[in-house]
Nucleic acid binder design. Structure first.
Lengths: 333, 333
DNA sequence: CAGATATCTGCAATCGGTTTCAGACTGAGG
DNA sequence: CCTCAGTCTGAAACCGATTGCAGATATCTG
């Protein structure tokens, strides 16, 4: 059916070995033979059979990507970055959505391990011990999480939180609320830590308003706490929550940013499309994706070479319309 | 390194063939042998090598998915549906994002064809002739497009447009604007057609406001035309555009839905999160994804069996806050 | 009880590449 | 002219599974 290496060999009047060499190590075959083989291969539309190559070389040319929920607007950008970078390196990407099921992750890694050369775990929910096990089954790179000795790519949360707090402090805010994500989440912990450090450094008060689901609804639920907490500014764990919060505040007649300022994190696409447009900390999502692929491919190219363990990408604060001068503290309007 | 079928065979005291049969056609091996083999396989953690299986059977166990832009919030839902349904059928999915590059699609199909058992083309931008060629390289199912004799899954646009127009007419709107997407797009044509038919049937006037990019910005650009067109309601080609339109109208001091009603299409996640929440025609995105996989797997299971050529999924109108009674026509407030 | 049939299993070929090894040929140097 | 190194090529083994074929055993039939 399909044209094989032997077909090319026959037409070019050489052996299969020569064709193989012409394609994979052209420098060791005679120039005129090479040219002829390549022309024939091209003319016949020859495409190496990946399965056959994989069988002998042990390389599949595939990468696996496991993530909790594609519907969460944070992830598609990461996938795009991964996808395009992988493709540039002649790798294909298996995308697997676990529907936020941490236990599914473990099974997926196991079943994927043999079919790919490496796995990218994006915001994995699994336990550290499970991560360690996973990393033994195949080369693994983590995105949005750090763990033990597994290479990882994440945003520089400490720096990002500082940007946020400095911005708010600069607007006169003294009491800043934080609407946290799920307690177990790595990002949540990172961000709490970063905010605490930043608050101390900038000398403002941080009011932790509790943990909520990292969704629009979760953010809406946090509105009550914001009012009770008597803060003049709120940082939400992500943009989705910030948007939920915005909606709930509006329902309660609280004006943003006049009565309270709101800052999101992620810079998802729609954060710029809502009204008022959301001030948010932009995470370089595509870049994180690309970088994770780089790390993986680098490791595959030379498994003995050392891989940078943790890569932290700088964030950027996008000041839009949901942050403004603090009202309460001292500046009477 | 990895445990092979021969390892299992040796430990179980049988031949490799028997192990193979135990795994793929259990009914033809002796019950006690079967049990022993399966136990050993499980105990050793045996996983068949997909490359080896693929080499001999010609089946890869992979599906390819080509789509224009993952960052467009319409697609992740479709991917989720495809992903989960494929996984249920023990298939993996290669996801490829073309970045809206129609010419890239052709190349991708070609390079993917040998590595997958079938390809799902989601909203492909390529020309009909190219589609025909693609379908010759591998089994293909189209999502969101119809073309010649290639099986396809799409929303029932005619029905959907009728729902929209009836809803608006019911609110007293007589002049309804349509902000169309790209002229070449299949959906655009379908929707124009559907709207025209619906307008005629319900006896309202349809004002076509021109073609715009299917983005937030594209929608914003359409605002001017909406005002000039003197319509009391607008249908946008998709939610992203509707949201852009909403923003631009607000900037011009036009209140929605008081001054003008707006209807989107797609029901992307954020359409419910903006204020006012967008009235939109919901497309069953996940379901479309699942269905496309069903069609493909069905064809793979029995290539001779006929496949339903076009599947149209019913849509649903979600009436939220951007549509209200018409102001102009006769009802003075 | 012989012979036919059914059931189960193993051998060996096969898929399409890659890679080791050895041989053919070339040209240089003595 | 012979030897030797260097360059290029082909034969054959191999990766890990599946499957047609044939042989072995058990079961059934008359």
């Amino acid at each position: 059916m399909a044209v094989t290496i032997r077909d090319v060999a026959r037409v070019a009047g050489v052996s299969a070995s020569t064709v193989s060499r012409a394609l994979s190590s052209p420098e060791i075959v005679d120039a005129v033979t090479l040219e002829r083989v390549l022309r024939v291969a091209d003319h016949l539309g020859y495409r190496p059979n990946r399965a056959a190559q994989g069988l002998i070389t042990g390389r599949t040319g595939n990468l696996g990507l496991i993530l909790p929920d594609l519907a969460n607007p944070f992830f598609p950008s990461v996938v795009k970055g991964i996808q395009s970078q992988a493709h540039a390196g002649d790798y294909q990407v298996f995308v697997m959505d676990t529907d936020e099921d941490a236990s599914a992750e473990v099974g997926l890694v196991r079943s994927l391990a043999k079919q790919v050369d490496g796995i990218i775990l994006c915001s994995p929910r699994m336990k550290p011990a499970e991560l360690r096990d996973a990393a033994r089954l195949a080369p693994v790179v983590l995105v949005n999480r750090r763990a033990g000795s597994i290479p990882s790519v994440s945003a520089d949360n400490a720096q990002g939180m500082l940007l946020i707090v400095e911005h708010l402090a600069g607007l006169g805010h003294q009491r800043i609320g934080f609407v946290a994500g799920p307690r177990q989440s790595w990002s949540t912990k990172e961000r709490v830590r970063g905010l605490r450090a930043a608050a101390e450094r900038v000398d403002v008060q941080l009011v932790e308003l509790g943990n909520f689901a990292p969704t629009f609804e979760g953010g809406a639920e946090a509105a009550e706490g914001v009012l009770i907490g008597a803060v003049t500014a709120v940082v939400a764990h992500n943009d989705l929550m910030a948007m939920g919060l915005l909606g709930a505040l509006r329902e309660r007649g609280i004006a943003v940013p006049r009565d309270v300022s709101v800052v999101g994190i992620d810079n998802i696409q729609t954060s710029a499309m809502v009204h008022p447009a959301l001030t948010t900390l932009a995470i370089p999502k595509e870049q994180a994706g690309r970088r994770s692929v780089d790390l993986l491919l680098q490791h595959l190219a030379d498994p003995s070479a050392p891989i940078p363990l943790t890569t932290e990408l700088p964030t950027e604060l996008l000041v839009r319309q949901t942050t403004g001068p603090a009202t309460h503290p001292k500046e009477p309007r």
